[in-house]
Every structure is written in C-alpha cells, then in structure tokens.
Amino acid sequence: MKLSAPVYHLKRQARLLSREAKIPLHEALDRVAVREGFASWSLLAAKAAGAARAGTLFAQLAPGDLVLVGARPGHGKTLMSLELAIEAMKSGSRGVFFTLEYTQRDVLDRFRAIGADPVQFNDRFVFDNSDAISADYIVKALGSAPRGTLVVIDYLQLLDQKRQNPELMAQVRTLKAFAGDRGLILVFISQIDRSYDPAQKPVPDIGDVRLPNPLDLSLFNKTCFLNKGEIRFRAAG
C-alpha cells in the first residue's frame, strides 16, 4: 500500500481541512481518503492496519486451521483475507480464492489496491467463482492442493444458499475435516449481523456473526474481526 504520507499525518491533514472547510471531521477524513485512492476513510484505515498486521497474523496460522474473518461491509475483511493469501504465497505456498460474489477482475483490482502485482503470483494463485461452490465442490477442486495452501471462501453465509446444498453446519464440518486431513488453511469471510452497534462495542466478535442458519462457531479455531482499522485476532484455547 502506497500513501502520500503516514496515516497519522493524513489524520492531521483531515483535521485541518475540517476546520478550514467547516465540515465534519468524518467528511474531511473521507475526502483525504478519496485523494489517496480509497472510497472512504474506513477502507483506508482498514487497509493500513491490514498491511501492517497481515504478516503477523499469518505467522499465527497453521495447517488445518479454520479461520473466520468478519466485518461490516467496507471495513476490510476481503482485503485482509487476500493479504493472508499473499503472505502464504510469499512464503512459497499457494493461495486459492473461492467466491460467489466477485469477478476475477474485482479480485485482481483488490490485489493492486493492496500494492500486490497479480502477475507475481500467477503460478500460485487460483480464482474460482463457479455457481456450484459448496463444501463438496471445494473438496473436489482442492484434491491435489499441497499442504500449507491458504484457501479463502467468500463467503460463509452463501454456502447453503442453494436448497440442493447440505446445511451450513454439515458443510463447515466437512471442510474442517478436509483441512485437517490435507493440512490446508481455510479462511472464511463472514458477514456481521445488522444488530451490531459499534457505539457499544468498537470491534465485533463471534457473537455478532450473522447466522441465518444454525452453525456451531466453535468449529473455527481462530477468528479475526475488523472495524474502522482496528483488528482483533483470537485463537481458541
């Protein structure tokens, strides 16, 4: 990520702009973020935090892990997940991105947004946006994936959207067993429930995960929640 100045200096610029233009600070922050190439300050802040911490977080992951990455829209959960995939590829492993939401161009644009050249990872990165994505589909697609491959699944709540797919609980259990057997790291991007109130809690947690269908969240042994640039990582146990 390339900014024209450190984040603390950009905040100072926003405060000056707020006073000079007589606009709210949050509006001034967003204007500064747009100037830096981001849609909002929250995205810039999340990106800055993610770039600084992705390496640290990746170092705490191990083959067989099921990781839940959750945030409200626009707070960096997809970017963080891609940052983790990039860290895996930098270490010599592979990265796979399964999505029911994005196009390949969308994902490549996000690579560039975090300062990564997609060409650098051409032989180690796989993108898949098949409409058939489910646990069984993922298991089949990763049949020959080497140990240490980091897999991003975008996103958790869509896995059982189609009626013909097994219930969400069964799919996550299947993927947990598969990850353990093959030594893969599975990162699930997750929505946060609308009831989450940042005024009451600065960062969401496991209790704020949106669950339209039953799911035992203890199946995930590591979690990462984000909000307005702040990141909370926890490991079970």
Rank of each mutant, 00 (worst) to 15 (best):
H9S: 11
Y137D: 04
Y8H: 14
S130C: 04
P214D: 07
E20P: 07
L159I: 01
A46K: 01
P24I: 11
D128R: 14
S4E: 12
H26D: 14
F125G: 08
V32F: 09
F98E: 07
G74F: 01
N122Y: 15
R35M: 08
S195M: 11
A46Y: 09
V69E: 07
A33N: 10
S81L: 09
A46R: 00
L16P: 10
A51V: 07
R105Q: 14
K176T: 07
S134W: 12
Y137G: 09
V107C: 11
V139I: 14
D208E: 07
R182G: 04
D123F: 12
N213S: 15
V209H: 02
S195T: 11
K222E: 08
Q120Y: 00
A46D: 14
L168C: 04
Y137H: 13
M1P: 12
P166V: 02
D208Q: 01
P202F: 06
Q60V: 03
G115N: 08
D208M: 03
P204W: 00
E83F: 02
V34P: 09
E167V: 08
K77G: 05
D123Q: 15
L226N: 00
A132F: 06
Q120R: 15
Q13Y: 07
A49V: 06
G229I: 04
K22S: 15
G237V: 02
E83V: 06
Y8K: 14
L219F: 00
F225A: 04
F225P: 03
A54G: 14
I114T: 11
R105V: 11
D109W: 02
I23T: 13
A145L: 12
A14C: 03
A39F: 05
A199V: 04
E101G: 13
S18L: 14
V187D: 03
F97H: 08
K22M: 09
A46Q: 01
R72D: 10
R35L: 10
V126P: 07
G55V: 03
T223R: 04
S91F: 00
G115I: 00
M80K: 05
P73N: 13
R105G: 06
Q13F: 03
P198R: 09
F121E: 05
V187N: 03
A179P: 04
H75I: 01
Q171F: 09
T99I: 02
M89A: 06
L29A: 06
E167S: 08
N122M: 11
I114S: 13
